[in-house]
Structures are given as C-alpha cells and as structure tokens.
Amino acid sequence: MVEHLQADGEEPCVTLDAFLEQSNATAVRLESDEDARALIPYLDRLKLIEVAFPKFRDGRGYSSARILREAGYTGELRAQGDVLVDQIGYMKRCGFDSFAPEKDLNPADVEAALSRWPEHYQAAADGAVPIWKLRHG
C-alpha cells in the first residue's frame, strides 16, 4: 500500500485500490486516470479526497472534482501535484477547496488569481451564479 504523508496529525491518504479493499480509511488519493465515481458509495465517510495533477496539462482532475461535488461530497477536496497559480481559479470552480502544489505559490498571486473574475459564464461546482441567471434574475 502506498501512503502519501500529509501535514502533521492528518490521516495519510490511501490509494483508491487500497480504499476499496479496506474502506475504513477516511482519506483517499485519486490518480488522474482513476474513476472518481468508484468513490460515490462512500462519500459520507470520507473527510479528504486528494486528486493528483501529475502535469498541469492533465485536466482529468477537473472532471473528477466536479463529479465528486455533483454527487454530494462535502469533505475536503485537495488538488495535489503540478498545481500552478494560473490553474487555481479553475480548480476552485470545479470544487477544490485545498491545494498542495509541488512548488510553492506566491500568496499574493494566488489571491489575485482567485479574485480576478467577478462573475462566470457557466455554472460549475462552486455555487457561483452563472451570468445568464444574473441577467434574468
């Protein structure tokens, strides 16, 4: 079983395969090629789902995040890996609420990236009201 050690006091994430075999864990790591829907029966029990971004160009994790939020997952959803400041806004819209970038990000840049867009054209997983709804009330 591969463990990914996290911050102090945090339960380490188990792999999806390990989780499905011994599902008393509350933290699981989803690789970019793994099916987020496999976790849907267990979402109530999970406190942390870590989604891997092995390369920033690998955008599968965005769909994984939305699928988990659309299925009602309310725990921590973490983007881990090649997470760059210019992707963070999209990640947040897809439902990520924590970030574990391999390379440290400048907090001021993160703040600027997250506050740049006052509104959004489309509905996603962050609860933002899409522009078409703002237009029509």
């Binding site: 955008g59 939305r66 992707q87 999209y90 489309q122």
Partner: peptide, 14 residues
C-alpha cells in the same frame, strides 16, 4: 461561446 469561455472543467483538455 459564452458557455465555453473560461470553462473551468474544459480548459485543459487532451
């Protein structure tokens, strides 16, 4: 056009 502009899920497609 509007739906696809800055679409958060589909900005890093294959």
């Amino acid at each position: 056009r509007q739906w696809s502009s800055f679409h958060p899920e589909f900005s890093y497609l294959p």
